[in-house]
Design a protein around this nucleic acid. Sequence first.
RNA 1: AGCCGUGUGGCCGAGAGGAUAGGUACAGGUCUGCAACACCUUUUACGUCGGUUCGAAUCCGACCGCGGCGUCCA
Length: 487
Amino acid sequence: MSELKVYNSLSRTKEVFTPITPGHVGLYVCGPTVSGESHLGHARPYITFDVINRYLAHLGYKVRYVRNITDAGHFEEEGRAAEDKISKKAILEKLEPMELVQKYTNLFHWAMQQFNTLPPSIEPTATGHIVEQIGMIETIIKAGYGYEVNGSVYFDVKKYAASHDYGKLSGRVIDDLLETTRDLEGQEEKRDRADFALWKNAAPEHIMRWQSPWGIGFPGWHIECSAMATKYLGSQFDIHGGGMDLLFPHHESEIAQSTICNHQAPVRYWIHNNMITINGRKMGKSYNNQIQLTEMFSGSHPILEKAYHPMVIRFFILQTHYRSTLDFSNEALQASEKGLKRLWEAYENLGKLRAISDELRAEAGDPELDARVSKLISEFDEFMNDDFSTARVLANMFELAPVINSMKDKIIPVTSLSKETFALLQKQFSVYIEDILGLKSISAEDNEKLQGIMQLLIDIRKEAKGKKDFVTSDKIRNQLAQLGITL
RNA sequence: AGCCGUGUGGCCGAGAGGAUAGGUACAGGUCUGCAACACCUUUUACGUCGGUUCGAAUCCGACCGCGGCGUCCA
């Protein structure tokens, strides 16, 4: 089998993946900020890294997958005193901050379950790791790379850049940063405009606050991830993932902080997923174009023509390479919906063929077809090893679908394939579609409950048709059609 | 301004110096009481202009368009 290659944002090339500790992988992914509901764009990284997590496990690695919950919020500097995003909204909604955080955390977990993502091994919260963050900041100050001003602590980027490559990940040039950082109030505290906050002094009205050596305040955004990643994965770990929009300044700053504290680059492979766009534009707060996940599932958004099943969204995301932008449209989602339905039916048909698989023999009845099928199957691994190319795996599955369906309809005999190829087809199709891609039937739950009733209706209709009683048969068909069930 | 990235058929998207990607839609056919499903067949491609090459959608250059970062961001 070919080796796993991953695209490393650090080198901007595909590299062979070699874990630090043989047989184990440390994976950290920036989790959600639970100050609000997740939107469609948020689904992408969690589904992408779910597949990466699943595939690494499939390869036999023991993965420690850490995905944090950012519940302390980041400070906003809107020309006013710095405020914590979460506490700001909490006041408006007259809720206890942690109540708000819990509500959106629960909602996030629910959505992740709908998407059939596997839970991370550890899901640390930022608020639960204030001690570790303060510890790291103290180390940075001691090393001479952090300084305190009026109860806030900043990271000295210029000093760091003198001996380290600040901008290595993002391709940023330090001199440009000094020129272009936005002119904001509160900036005068910093020695340099490129510096970023490690700890922020909290104004009295700030609800989320903690005692620190520098007074009452709250942690900066970047230090959260550094502290939690170091605690659970060590000074250096294998993979750090997240959205491309976090590359700078978030990930660049994480590297700087961790490098000072732990004396080595924190991450071997940086993996970044691209954005979901809508009308060619990134989905996000600033454009006011986001569609919440709950709206996607229920169809309750003016842009949406209908509701989209979580599995359709998962499939839609997996049909594109994770490093390409993915443009949302109703047409594209509906194409995915039909595609997934077709693929899943082929998969179910494959299961049904088990009954007649006794007929199979060692030699293939149609060696040419047999060869084509085994090639398509063997490419599953090859494509996944090539930087997790789920889109190509799915394309191969679609090429196998007509073969499977034709065997099921007895247009071609099952014995066209050798016993070995058929077994491989069943096994690999199942492993990939369910275990690695994490797909499920769109209506699995309904099916279980309704299968019996459905079968009864189908039988009655068949009887009616047999008696040429088309009034009854059409009535059954049409009524079911109204419920969205096609016979 | 800069730094990254990107431009593929009606739509979504793989791929990548010589091969039919794939999905979906449209059209025709087989099947069917009519449909649907399934299966078969099939049309519309690689932003523009140059260059390298026997050959470029794929490499190089210029230009144009779009996006991301730079500011909360997945």
